[in-house]
Every structure is written in structure tokens, then in C-alpha cells.
């Protein structure tokens, strides 16, 4: 089985976020870029399938700027992906999701695949647009928020669960499919030290932007006329409730929640 995993570098949860002077992007200084948690689950799922289906191979693909994109591809190789493709996005070009979907469609033409895996959304912008947009462009079925994907060789079907808002569905489907993985359900592995060292020497296949751009055709990229980031006003810290007894604390809090915060009648 040929499996493709789409991955994306995102700022580590502990990175400090600071918009630049114009608020148009987040200041790169001090941001640590890592594989998104959703993508880690997707890579783990690919590796589990690879182990279960003899003769399988896993290719990770990412569209993004240097150097962080190459780094997350190496991290994916360290986890166990066999090959990696970096579609280079010029530094400074906005990360429009529809552009990204079109670019990935072009990249996927080069690699035959039975299954495309992705995180159901990215850990930074949390859009979740790219997987379903790409599925639409490819004309394949897609399912997001998936856990526990298995291959049933005798029926040539995938079986998996979709975790929806108020329950879950069991799905059986034939490939090719695009599957968006739920985060952290499969306890993604940690790359071992020898594999990290080996991944430094792995070949990363590169698709330069100049090769990809002419393939995209007429397309009005840049859905947004502007983009700004703002940080929430710093929380000033909790207003602590003074009380003599637990009952008094409860009474005061409920009164505040009803009359001041108005969160319930």
C-alpha cells in the first residue's frame, strides 16, 4: 500500500506568540517549529498501517518555506516515513489553504497512492480546510476526525471511526481516500536517537516553486485582502472570592455567574 501523509510545521505550544509591528504575521523570532500534534497522529497511523500491510511505504509531503518545512519532514522521516517531498513555498508567500490544496494536488500526481492521511486540522491556524479542499480537487471521498483506521485485505476496504460532536460513526470505504486524523488518540511514537541521526542524512525530494507554479493554472489565489493577528488582552488574573465558609463561597460565585457574568439564568 502506498500511503501519503501531509504534514505541516506549526509553532510549539510553549512558543511565545508576538505579532509583528503591522500585526500581519507572527514574529518568527523565538518560535520553535514542530510537527503539528494532529500530523503526529497521522504519521503514527501511517506507520501502523505500514506495519500491518506488508510491502507498504509511506511518503510525507509538506508545502512550506525553508527551513522549518524541511525540518518537520526530517522529523517525520525520523519517526519512520520512508520518503519525503518538500514543495518549496517562497518565504513571505501567504499560506492560502486553497493554494496549498492545489499545490498538493500537483505534487500528488507524481506519487501513486492508495491512501492520503493528514491531521484533521493544523495545530496553529486550526482551519481544517486543506484536507477536504484537496479531496474535492482529487475527486475522492474524505473523512475528518478519524480514529482507529484499519485495512481489511480480504474485502479491500478500510474501516475506521469518525468522532463527531455527539457520537461516532463506523465507516467502511474503499480507497483512494483522504483521511483527517484526530489528535493524540494513538499515542504517537517518539523518534529514537539513532533514527534522528539517520534522518539528517536522508534525501528530501524537492519540488521548487518555479516547477509547481506553472502547473496551477488560472486561479485567484489570495482569498484574503488582509490578514492581521491580535493577542487577547492579557488576562489580569482571577478575581478571588472572599469567604468564611464553603457555603458562602458557593453562594457568592453563583450570584456572580448569574448576575455579572450572565452565564446561566
Amino acid at each position: 500500500m502506498e500511503i501519503v501523509v501531509l504534514v505541516k510545521p506549526v509553532p510549539d505550544a510553549e512558543s511565545r506568540l508576538r505579532p509583528n509591528a503591522g500585526g500581519t504575521e507572527l514574529d518568527g523570532e523565538g518560535i520553535k517549529w514542530v510537527l503539528s500534534g494532529y500530523d503526529e497522529s497521522a504519521v503514527e497511523q501511517a506507520l501502523l498501517l505500514k506495519a500491518a500491510v506488508p510491502g507498504s511505504s509511506v511518503r510525507c509531503i509538506s508545502f512550506g518555506p525553508a527551513p522549518r518545512t524541511e525540518e518537520v519532514l526530517r522529523a517525520s522521516v525520523a519517526l519512520g516515513c520512508d520518503r519525503a517531498t518538500w514543495v518549496e513555498r517562497p518565504v513571505g508567500m501567504p499560506a492560502d489553504p486553497l493554494l496549498c490544496a492545489r499545490v498538493l494536488r500537483e505534487a500528488l500526481r507524481k506519487y501513486p497512492h492508495d491512501l492520503i492521511l493528514a491531521g484533521k486540522q493544523a495545530g496553529d491556524d486550526e482551519e481544517g480546510i486543506v484536507p477536504s479542499a484537496l479531496a474535492e480537487l482529487l475527486g475522492v471521498e474524505s473523512f475528518g476526525s478519524v480514529v482507529d483506521l484499519r485495512w481489511h485485505a480480504e474485502e479491500k476496504r478500510f474501516r475506521f471511526q469518525c468522532v463527531l460532536d455527539s457520537g461516532s460513526e463506523k465507516v467502511e470505504a474503499a480507497g483512494p481516500l483522504l483521511i483527517g486524523l484526530q489528535q493524540a488518540w494513538n499515542d504517537p511514537r517518539t523518534a529514537t536517537l539513532p533514527n534522528i541521526l539517520r534522518s539528517r542524512k536522508a534525501t528530501i525530494d524537492r519540488l521548487p516553486w518555479s516547477d509547481v507554479a506553472p502547473l496551477l493554472g488560472a486561479f485567484s489565489a489570495g482569498r484574503t485582502t488582509s490578514q492581521r493577528f491580535r493577542l487577547p488582552p492579557p488576562r489580569t488574573g482571577a478575581r478571588l472570592i472572599d469567604y468564611q465558609s464553603p457555603e458562602e463561597a458557593a453562594e457568592k460565585l453563583v450570584k456572580i455567574l448569574r448576575e455579572e457574568a450572565k452565564v446561566f439564568p
Binding site: P11, G123, E126, T224, R230
Partner: peptide
């Protein structure tokens, strides 16, 4: 975005 640690503003057109 970023788990609520920032807000992104977009103008949608077309």
C-alpha cells in the same frame, strides 16, 4: 488560532 492564544482577522472578498 493557536488554541485561543491569538486571534486572526481576515477580510473575505470575491
Amino acid at each position: 488560532v493557536f488554541g485561543g492564544r491569538a486571534t486572526e482577522e481576515l477580510d473575505l472578498g470575491g
